Simulated scan of single mutants.
Amino acid sequence: MDSRSLNNESRCVFFNSSSKDNRCAVILSVKRATGTFSLVGCVFMLFVIWLLRRYHSLAQKMILSLTVAAFFDSIAYVMGETHPKGSLCNFQAWWLTYFDWSALAWVCLITLNLYLNLVREISTNRYEKFYHLMAWGLPLVMASLPLLRGCYGPAGAWCWITDDHVAWRFGIWYVPLFSLIFLMICCYGRIICVANNRMQSWRGTFNPERERRKVSLAAEIKPLKWYPSVYLLVSTFPLVNRLHNAFYPEEPSFPLTLLHVLSAPLHGLANAFVFGLDKEWWSLLSPTGLQLALQSRLCDRTRIGEYYPGAVRYTQADLIDPSDDDDDDTNVLFYSPDMTLKDRGP
C-alpha cells in the first residue's frame, strides 16, 4: 500500500471505511470550503467595519469583537485534514472550543447590552472591561477544562472532545449553548415588547427628527427575533449529529456529518453578519457608497481653506439640527454612541 493509500486510510477512519470510500474526502473538502467561506466573510466584515468606521461606540466595538472571534474560529476549520491524537490535535480542539465559546459569549453580551440599554435604560459604557473579561476569560476556562482532563482528540472531521467523553461534550458546549439560546429568545421577546410599547407611547407636537427615529426604531425591531434563531439554526445539525454519535458511536452517519460540517463553521460569521450588516450598512455598500467611503478613508485630511483649515469629518451630530430639543431621544439600537432611551410622556 503506497503512502497515499495510507493517508486515505487514516483520513477515513472515523467512518470505519476503506481507503476506497470517498465519503471522508467529501466531508473534509466541504469542511475546508465552508471554513474558507466563513474566513473570507469575516475578513469582509472587518474591512467594512474599518471602512465605515463602525468601531467607536460600545455596541460597535462589541460587534467588532464578535467578528474577530468568528475570524479566529474559522481558522480552526481550515487548519487541514484530520490529525491523529497528539499535541497538534489537542491544540486544534482547544482553539476550536475557545473561539466557539468566545463568539457565543459576544452574542450573549450584545443581547445583554441591548437589554440594559433599551429595557432597563442603563448606560453600559462603564461595563466595557467587564464584557471583555467575560468574553475572553470565560472561554479560556471552558476550553482548558477538557484539555486538563485529557478529553481532546480526533472527533470526526476535526479534533474536539472524543466519543469516549460524551458527557463532557454536552456539559461543556451543547447544554450551555441551547440554554443560552433559550435565554436570548426570552430576552429579545422582552426587548421587542418594550420597544413596541415605547414607540407607540410617543406623544407631543410633531417633530421631524423624532418621527425619523421612530421609523428607524420600527424598522430595526423587526429582525430582532432572528438573532437567536441564527444560532439555533446553525447549531441544530451539530447537536443531532453528536447525539447520533453518542447513541451509535460505531456507526457514524454520512448525511448528518455532512450537515454538521456545513453549518458548524458558520456560528460566528452568521451572527456577525446579522448584527453588523443592517439596512444602513447595505445602503452604504453600493458602488457609489463604497467609492465615497474609500475616498473619505484614504483622503481624510482634505481641507477647505476658505471656511476652516481643519480636517473635514462628517458625523451624525452634524446632520442633526442643534436647535432640536429632543437630543436624548436616541433610539438607534446597535450603533448609537449614547443609548439613553427614556419614556417620553405627553
Rank of each mutant, 00 (worst) to 15 (best):
A76S: 09
W94K: 07
I122D: 07
L112K: 01
E121L: 11
P84N: 12
V119N: 01
C108E: 08
S144E: 07
L66S: 02
G150V: 02
I49P: 05
Q60S: 15
N90K: 05
S57Y: 06
K129R: 05
V78Q: 07
Y55H: 14
L112A: 11
W50I: 03
K61I: 00
Y98F: 15
C151Q: 09
K129F: 13
H132W: 15
W50K: 02
R53S: 11
A143F: 03
I75R: 05
L118Q: 10
L116Y: 14
G86L: 09
M62R: 00
L114V: 04
Y115I: 08
A143I: 03
C108P: 12
R54N: 10
F71R: 04
I122Y: 04
R54D: 08
T111W: 14
S74D: 02
M62Q: 08
R54S: 08
D73Q: 03
A70K: 03
I110P: 12
E128P: 08
H83V: 02
S57E: 08
I49R: 10
L118E: 14
A70Q: 02
N113Y: 10
L133V: 07
M142H: 13
L58E: 13
H83A: 15
S144Y: 01
N117E: 05
S65E: 10
L138I: 15
G86I: 01
L88G: 08
N117K: 12
A103N: 06
